[in-house]
Simulated assay, not measured.
Amino acid sequence: MNLKQLSQMLALSQTTVSRALNGYPEVNEETRRRVVDAAKRHGYRPNPSARRLATGKTGMIGYVLPTGTSVDIDPHFVEFLSGLGDYARAHELDLVLSPADADDQETTYRRIVANRQVDAVYISSPRPADRRIALLHGLGIPFIVHGRSDGHDFDYSYIDIDNEGAFHEATRLLLQLGHQRTALINGDTRETFAIHREQGVRRALAGSGLSLDGRHVLSMAMTEENGYRAARRLLEGADAPTAILCSSLIMALGVVRAARDLNVSIPGDVSLIAHDDVFPWLRPENFSVPLATTRSSIRAAGARVAERLAARISGLESEIRGEVWPVDVVVRGSVAGVPR
Protein backbone atom coordinates (compact mmCIF):
# COMPACT_ATOMS: atom_id res chain seq x y z
CA MET A 1 0.00 0.00 0.00
CA ASN A 2 1.35 3.42 -0.92
CA LEU A 3 0.67 6.80 0.67
CA LYS A 4 -2.04 7.71 -1.85
CA GLN A 5 -3.96 4.50 -1.24
CA LEU A 6 -3.66 4.86 2.54
CA SER A 7 -4.92 8.44 2.44
CA GLN A 8 -7.86 7.49 0.18
CA MET A 9 -8.86 4.68 2.50
CA LEU A 10 -8.83 7.04 5.50
CA ALA A 11 -10.48 9.92 3.58
CA LEU A 12 -7.60 12.20 4.54
CA SER A 13 -5.18 14.21 2.46
CA GLN A 14 -1.76 12.73 1.75
CA THR A 15 -0.21 15.68 3.58
CA THR A 16 -2.23 14.94 6.74
CA VAL A 17 -1.35 11.24 6.63
CA SER A 18 2.34 12.03 6.11
CA ARG A 19 2.38 14.54 8.94
CA ALA A 20 0.56 12.13 11.26
CA LEU A 21 3.08 9.38 10.55
CA ASN A 22 5.99 11.75 11.17
CA GLY A 23 4.65 13.09 14.47
CA TYR A 24 3.93 16.70 13.48
CA PRO A 25 2.26 18.55 16.40
CA GLU A 26 -0.49 20.17 14.28
CA VAL A 27 -2.13 16.74 13.74
CA ASN A 28 -4.43 15.95 16.66
CA GLU A 29 -3.81 12.82 18.70
CA GLU A 30 -6.98 11.01 17.60
CA THR A 31 -6.13 11.42 13.89
CA ARG A 32 -2.51 10.47 14.45
CA ARG A 33 -3.50 7.28 16.25
CA ARG A 34 -6.03 6.39 13.54
CA VAL A 35 -3.42 6.84 10.81
CA VAL A 36 -0.70 4.91 12.64
CA ASP A 37 -3.08 2.02 13.43
CA ALA A 38 -4.19 1.82 9.78
CA ALA A 39 -0.58 1.92 8.55
CA LYS A 40 0.38 -0.96 10.83
CA ARG A 41 -2.73 -2.97 9.96
CA HIS A 42 -2.13 -2.71 6.22
CA GLY A 43 1.67 -2.99 6.31
CA TYR A 44 2.36 0.53 5.05
CA ARG A 45 5.94 1.74 5.44
CA PRO A 46 6.93 5.17 4.11
CA ASN A 47 9.48 5.27 1.34
CA PRO A 48 12.56 7.00 2.82
CA SER A 49 13.20 9.10 -0.29
CA ALA A 50 9.55 10.13 -0.59
CA ARG A 51 9.40 10.97 3.11
CA ARG A 52 12.46 13.14 2.80
CA LEU A 53 11.01 15.01 -0.17
CA ALA A 54 7.64 15.49 1.54
CA THR A 55 8.81 16.43 5.03
CA GLY A 56 12.48 17.35 4.76
CA LYS A 57 13.13 14.65 7.38
CA THR A 58 15.22 11.50 7.04
CA GLY A 59 13.65 9.63 9.97
CA MET A 60 17.17 8.88 11.20
CA ILE A 61 18.99 9.43 14.49
CA GLY A 62 22.77 9.70 14.26
CA TYR A 63 25.60 8.58 16.52
CA VAL A 64 29.29 9.11 15.88
CA LEU A 65 31.05 5.93 16.99
CA PRO A 66 34.70 6.37 18.01
CA THR A 67 36.91 3.61 16.59
CA GLY A 68 40.54 2.59 16.71
CA THR A 69 42.85 0.21 18.55
CA SER A 70 42.50 2.20 21.78
CA VAL A 71 38.68 1.96 21.81
CA ASP A 72 36.84 -0.91 23.48
CA ILE A 73 33.10 -1.44 22.97
CA ASP A 74 31.70 -0.98 26.46
CA PRO A 75 28.86 -3.39 27.46
CA HIS A 76 27.13 -0.36 29.02
CA PHE A 77 26.99 1.24 25.57
CA VAL A 78 25.54 -1.93 24.03
CA GLU A 79 22.79 -1.99 26.67
CA PHE A 80 22.06 1.70 26.08
CA LEU A 81 21.89 1.09 22.34
CA SER A 82 19.41 -1.74 22.88
CA GLY A 83 17.03 0.60 24.70
CA LEU A 84 17.41 3.28 22.04
CA GLY A 85 16.83 0.71 19.31
CA ASP A 86 13.70 -0.67 20.99
CA TYR A 87 12.07 2.77 20.89
CA ALA A 88 13.33 3.63 17.41
CA ARG A 89 12.02 0.38 15.90
CA ALA A 90 8.57 0.88 17.44
CA HIS A 91 8.35 4.45 16.09
CA GLU A 92 9.61 4.02 12.51
CA LEU A 93 13.00 5.60 13.21
CA ASP A 94 16.38 4.35 12.05
CA LEU A 95 19.73 4.63 13.78
CA VAL A 96 22.81 5.61 11.77
CA LEU A 97 26.25 4.81 13.22
CA SER A 98 29.05 6.85 11.68
CA PRO A 99 32.52 5.51 12.56
CA ALA A 100 35.16 8.13 13.34
CA ASP A 101 38.73 8.34 14.48
CA ALA A 102 38.55 8.60 18.27
CA ASP A 103 40.83 11.65 18.17
CA ASP A 104 38.97 13.45 15.38
CA GLN A 105 35.23 12.98 15.83
CA GLU A 106 34.44 16.61 14.94
CA THR A 107 35.11 16.06 11.23
CA THR A 108 32.49 13.31 11.13
CA TYR A 109 29.93 15.42 12.99
CA ARG A 110 30.42 18.25 10.50
CA ARG A 111 30.03 15.86 7.56
CA ILE A 112 26.78 14.23 8.68
CA VAL A 113 25.26 17.62 9.51
CA ALA A 114 26.39 19.22 6.23
CA ASN A 115 25.05 16.26 4.22
CA ARG A 116 21.77 16.23 6.18
CA GLN A 117 22.17 12.52 6.75
CA VAL A 118 20.25 12.54 10.03
CA ASP A 119 17.56 14.61 11.76
CA ALA A 120 19.18 14.58 15.21
CA VAL A 121 22.15 13.10 17.05
CA TYR A 122 23.04 12.05 20.56
CA ILE A 123 26.31 12.21 22.47
CA SER A 124 27.46 9.69 25.07
CA SER A 125 30.26 9.59 27.66
CA PRO A 126 30.66 13.39 27.87
CA ARG A 127 33.70 15.02 29.43
CA PRO A 128 33.88 18.43 31.12
CA ALA A 129 33.63 21.25 28.55
CA ASP A 130 33.08 18.59 25.89
CA ARG A 131 33.96 20.00 22.47
CA ARG A 132 31.36 17.83 20.72
CA ILE A 133 28.57 19.59 22.60
CA ALA A 134 29.90 23.03 21.72
CA LEU A 135 30.22 21.96 18.08
CA LEU A 136 26.65 20.65 17.77
CA HIS A 137 25.31 23.69 19.59
CA GLY A 138 26.97 25.85 16.95
CA LEU A 139 25.85 23.68 14.02
CA GLY A 140 22.22 23.98 15.10
CA ILE A 141 21.15 20.33 14.74
CA PRO A 142 18.83 18.87 17.42
CA PHE A 143 20.83 16.79 19.90
CA ILE A 144 20.65 15.28 23.37
CA VAL A 145 23.54 14.30 25.64
CA HIS A 146 23.45 11.08 27.64
CA GLY A 147 25.19 12.44 30.71
CA ARG A 148 26.35 15.94 31.58
CA SER A 149 29.29 18.16 30.72
CA ASP A 150 30.23 21.02 33.04
CA GLY A 151 31.97 24.16 31.82
CA HIS A 152 29.73 25.41 28.97
CA ASP A 153 28.33 28.95 28.80
CA PHE A 154 25.08 27.75 27.16
CA ASP A 155 22.28 25.36 28.07
CA TYR A 156 21.73 22.05 26.28
CA SER A 157 19.38 19.09 26.58
CA TYR A 158 20.56 16.02 28.46
CA ILE A 159 19.48 12.92 30.36
CA ASP A 160 21.61 11.80 33.28
CA ILE A 161 21.39 9.95 36.58
CA ASP A 162 22.30 11.48 39.93
CA ASN A 163 25.78 9.95 40.09
CA GLU A 164 26.93 12.17 42.94
CA GLY A 165 23.80 11.52 44.99
CA ALA A 166 24.01 7.76 44.42
CA PHE A 167 27.58 7.43 45.66
CA HIS A 168 26.94 9.89 48.48
CA GLU A 169 24.11 7.70 49.79
CA ALA A 170 26.10 4.49 49.32
CA THR A 171 28.98 5.99 51.31
CA ARG A 172 26.60 7.17 54.03
CA LEU A 173 25.31 3.60 54.37
CA LEU A 174 28.86 2.35 54.87
CA LEU A 175 29.54 5.07 57.43
CA GLN A 176 26.43 4.05 59.36
CA LEU A 177 27.81 0.52 59.45
CA GLY A 178 31.03 1.84 61.01
CA HIS A 179 33.35 1.86 57.97
CA GLN A 180 35.99 4.60 58.05
CA ARG A 181 38.40 3.19 55.44
CA THR A 182 36.38 3.17 52.23
CA ALA A 183 37.96 2.77 48.78
CA LEU A 184 36.59 3.78 45.39
CA ILE A 185 37.26 1.82 42.19
CA ASN A 186 36.02 4.34 39.67
CA GLY A 187 35.64 4.74 35.92
CA ASP A 188 37.75 7.06 33.81
CA THR A 189 37.86 10.39 35.67
CA ARG A 190 38.17 12.27 32.39
CA GLU A 191 34.42 11.58 32.07
CA THR A 192 31.86 13.55 34.06
CA PHE A 193 30.00 10.60 35.60
CA ALA A 194 33.18 9.40 37.32
CA ILE A 195 33.99 12.91 38.58
CA HIS A 196 30.51 13.21 40.09
CA ARG A 197 30.75 9.78 41.75
CA GLU A 198 34.03 10.67 43.45
CA GLN A 199 32.51 13.97 44.57
CA GLY A 200 29.65 12.06 46.18
CA VAL A 201 32.01 9.83 48.14
CA ARG A 202 34.16 12.75 49.30
CA ARG A 203 31.12 14.78 50.35
CA ALA A 204 29.71 11.95 52.46
CA LEU A 205 33.05 11.29 54.15
CA ALA A 206 33.58 15.00 54.83
CA GLY A 207 30.18 15.09 56.54
CA SER A 208 31.61 12.63 59.10
CA GLY A 209 34.93 14.43 59.43
CA LEU A 210 36.77 11.95 57.21
CA SER A 211 38.59 12.19 53.88
CA LEU A 212 39.23 9.83 50.99
CA ASP A 213 42.78 8.46 51.18
CA GLY A 214 44.55 9.00 47.85
CA ARG A 215 45.76 5.38 47.96
CA HIS A 216 42.14 4.27 48.08
CA VAL A 217 41.01 5.92 44.82
CA LEU A 218 41.67 4.04 41.59
CA SER A 219 40.27 5.14 38.21
CA MET A 220 40.35 3.14 34.98
CA ALA A 221 38.32 1.63 32.15
CA MET A 222 35.45 -0.40 33.56
CA THR A 223 36.45 -3.98 32.78
CA GLU A 224 36.47 -7.16 34.85
CA GLU A 225 40.26 -7.42 34.64
CA ASN A 226 40.75 -3.83 35.84
CA GLY A 227 38.40 -4.51 38.74
CA TYR A 228 40.51 -7.53 39.68
CA ARG A 229 43.82 -5.66 39.53
CA ALA A 230 42.46 -2.69 41.46
CA ALA A 231 41.01 -4.89 44.21
CA ARG A 232 44.26 -6.81 44.63
CA ARG A 233 46.21 -3.57 44.89
CA LEU A 234 43.82 -2.30 47.57
CA LEU A 235 43.45 -5.50 49.58
CA GLU A 236 47.18 -6.30 49.57
CA GLY A 237 48.22 -2.77 50.52
CA ALA A 238 48.84 -1.24 53.93
CA ASP A 239 45.69 -0.06 55.70
CA ALA A 240 43.48 -2.09 53.38
CA PRO A 241 39.95 -0.70 53.14
CA THR A 242 37.10 -2.32 55.03
CA ALA A 243 34.66 -1.31 52.26
CA ILE A 244 34.87 -0.84 48.49
CA LEU A 245 32.62 1.20 46.24
CA CYS A 246 32.81 0.06 42.62
CA SER A 247 31.60 2.05 39.60
CA SER A 248 30.47 -0.93 37.55
CA LEU A 249 28.88 -4.32 38.05
CA ILE A 250 31.36 -5.68 35.50
CA MET A 251 34.32 -4.38 37.54
CA ALA A 252 32.71 -5.93 40.63
CA LEU A 253 33.15 -9.37 39.04
CA GLY A 254 36.90 -8.75 39.20
CA VAL A 255 36.69 -7.50 42.80
CA VAL A 256 34.90 -10.69 43.87
CA ARG A 257 37.50 -12.82 42.05
CA ALA A 258 40.36 -10.96 43.73
CA ALA A 259 38.78 -11.35 47.16
CA ARG A 260 38.38 -15.10 46.56
CA ASP A 261 42.01 -15.48 45.45
CA LEU A 262 43.20 -13.63 48.57
CA ASN A 263 40.86 -15.52 50.94
CA VAL A 264 39.15 -12.25 51.81
CA SER A 265 35.54 -12.69 52.86
CA ILE A 266 32.70 -10.54 51.49
CA PRO A 267 31.24 -9.05 53.66
CA GLY A 268 33.12 -10.52 56.65
CA ASP A 269 36.42 -8.77 55.82
CA VAL A 270 35.32 -6.18 53.26
CA SER A 271 31.93 -4.81 52.26
CA LEU A 272 31.20 -4.18 48.59
CA ILE A 273 28.72 -1.90 46.79
CA ALA A 274 28.69 -1.58 42.99
CA HIS A 275 26.80 0.53 40.50
CA ASP A 276 24.25 -1.73 38.82
CA ASP A 277 23.08 -0.91 35.30
CA VAL A 278 20.44 -3.66 35.38
CA PHE A 279 22.04 -5.95 32.83
CA PRO A 280 19.61 -8.79 31.97
CA TRP A 281 22.57 -11.20 31.69
CA LEU A 282 24.38 -10.15 34.89
CA ARG A 283 22.18 -9.84 37.97
CA PRO A 284 23.61 -8.65 41.31
CA GLU A 285 21.36 -11.00 43.28
CA ASN A 286 23.01 -13.97 41.51
CA PHE A 287 26.55 -13.20 42.72
CA SER A 288 28.02 -15.72 45.17
CA VAL A 289 27.13 -13.13 47.80
CA PRO A 290 24.15 -11.04 46.62
CA LEU A 291 25.62 -7.67 45.71
CA ALA A 292 24.47 -4.34 47.17
CA THR A 293 24.04 -1.80 44.39
CA THR A 294 23.14 1.69 43.35
CA ARG A 295 20.52 0.85 40.74
CA SER A 296 19.70 2.53 37.43
CA SER A 297 18.64 1.09 34.07
CA ILE A 298 20.86 2.24 31.21
CA ARG A 299 18.48 0.52 28.74
CA ALA A 300 15.64 2.74 29.99
CA ALA A 301 17.91 5.76 29.51
CA GLY A 302 18.50 4.72 25.89
CA ALA A 303 14.77 4.51 25.24
CA ARG A 304 14.23 7.92 26.83
CA VAL A 305 16.96 9.53 24.71
CA ALA A 306 15.29 8.15 21.57
CA GLU A 307 11.87 9.35 22.75
CA ARG A 308 13.10 12.88 23.34
CA LEU A 309 15.03 13.00 20.07
CA ALA A 310 11.87 11.92 18.23
CA ALA A 311 9.98 14.72 19.99
CA ARG A 312 12.63 17.26 19.00
CA ILE A 313 12.57 16.09 15.39
CA SER A 314 8.76 16.42 15.19
CA GLY A 315 8.63 19.75 17.03
CA LEU A 316 6.81 18.36 20.08
CA GLU A 317 9.80 19.34 22.23
CA SER A 318 11.49 22.66 21.60
CA GLU A 319 12.73 23.84 24.99
CA ILE A 320 16.23 23.08 26.25
CA ARG A 321 15.80 20.77 29.22
CA GLY A 322 17.91 18.51 31.39
CA GLU A 323 16.69 15.42 33.22
CA VAL A 324 18.44 13.96 36.25
CA TRP A 325 17.08 10.60 37.38
CA PRO A 326 17.29 9.58 41.05
CA VAL A 327 19.20 6.38 41.85
CA ASP A 328 18.11 3.77 44.40
CA VAL A 329 20.49 2.12 46.85
CA VAL A 330 19.60 -1.58 47.11
CA VAL A 331 21.00 -3.29 50.21
CA ARG A 332 21.93 -6.95 49.81
CA GLY A 333 24.26 -9.42 51.49
CA SER A 334 27.59 -7.89 50.41
CA VAL A 335 27.51 -5.18 53.10
CA ALA A 336 27.90 -5.63 56.86
CA GLY A 337 29.31 -3.86 59.87
CA VAL A 338 32.99 -3.01 60.04
CA PRO A 339 35.17 -6.09 60.90
CA ARG A 340 36.30 -6.23 64.51
Results as ranks from 00 to 15, higher is better:
329 V>S: 01
2 N>H: 10
262 L>C: 00
19 R>Q: 11
276 D>V: 04
123 I>Y: 08
251 M>L: 01
60 M>L: 11
82 S>D: 15
246 C>V: 10
234 L>W: 12
323 E>I: 13
48 P>W: 07
131 R>N: 13
156 Y>E: 02
134 A>P: 12
30 E>M: 08
79 E>K: 14
246 C>T: 13
239 D>Q: 13
101 D>C: 00
119 D>I: 05
84 L>D: 00
96 V>I: 02
311 A>D: 04
7 S>C: 04
106 E>F: 10
248 S>T: 00
314 S>H: 05
196 H>P: 08
219 S>G: 06
249 L>K: 07
102 A>G: 01
2 N>D: 12
106 E>C: 06
177 L>C: 02
275 H>P: 02
126 P>T: 00
23 G>H: 14
32 R>Q: 15
179 H>A: 05
238 A>E: 15
252 A>I: 04
258 A>E: 03
204 A>E: 12
73 I>G: 09
209 G>S: 08
236 E>N: 15
168 H>D: 13
239 D>T: 14
101 D>R: 03
275 H>L: 15
99 P>E: 11
93 L>A: 13
40 K>E: 14
310 A>M: 06
278 V>I: 07
145 V>Y: 15
46 P>L: 12
185 I>G: 13
225 E>W: 05
232 R>N: 01
321 R>W: 00
248 S>K: 10
166 A>L: 00
156 Y>D: 12
164 E>G: 07
116 R>A: 15
230 A>C: 04
144 I>Q: 15
65 L>T: 15
261 D>C: 00
275 H>I: 10
311 A>C: 05
21 L>C: 13
143 F>G: 03
165 G>Y: 12
181 R>C: 05
260 R>H: 01
83 G>Q: 09
283 R>V: 03
151 G>W: 10
132 R>E: 00
155 D>A: 14
190 R>W: 00
48 P>A: 02
27 V>I: 14
90 A>D: 07
68 G>R: 05
305 V>L: 09
139 L>P: 13
187 G>L: 06
288 S>A: 10
43 G>N: 04
267 P>F: 00
260 R>E: 01
177 L>I: 09
91 H>Q: 05
220 M>N: 09
221 A>L: 14
63 Y>Q: 10
250 I>T: 02
39 A>Y: 01
5 Q>T: 08
197 R>V: 04
36 V>Y: 11
83 G>K: 14
236 E>K: 08
222 M>E: 01
75 P>W: 03
65 L>Q: 15
74 D>K: 01
90 A>K: 09
57 K>I: 08
84 L>C: 07
171 T>E: 00
200 G>D: 07
96 V>A: 06
149 S>A: 01
92 E>Y: 06
249 L>R: 08
104 D>S: 13
74 D>I: 03
287 F>E: 01
315 G>E: 09
203 R>D: 08
279 F>D: 02
115 N>M: 03
282 L>H: 08
108 T>M: 11
324 V>Q: 14
201 V>G: 08
17 V>H: 07
174 L>F: 12
204 A>C: 11
328 D>C: 03
216 H>V: 11
46 P>W: 11
44 Y>E: 11
314 S>V: 04
290 P>I: 07
238 A>P: 11
243 A>M: 14
226 N>I: 01
128 P>T: 13
28 N>M: 01
333 G>T: 10
42 H>E: 11
292 A>W: 06
220 M>H: 10
168 H>I: 08
66 P>Q: 11
127 R>N: 07
23 G>F: 05
165 G>A: 09
11 A>R: 15
259 A>P: 01
207 G>Y: 02
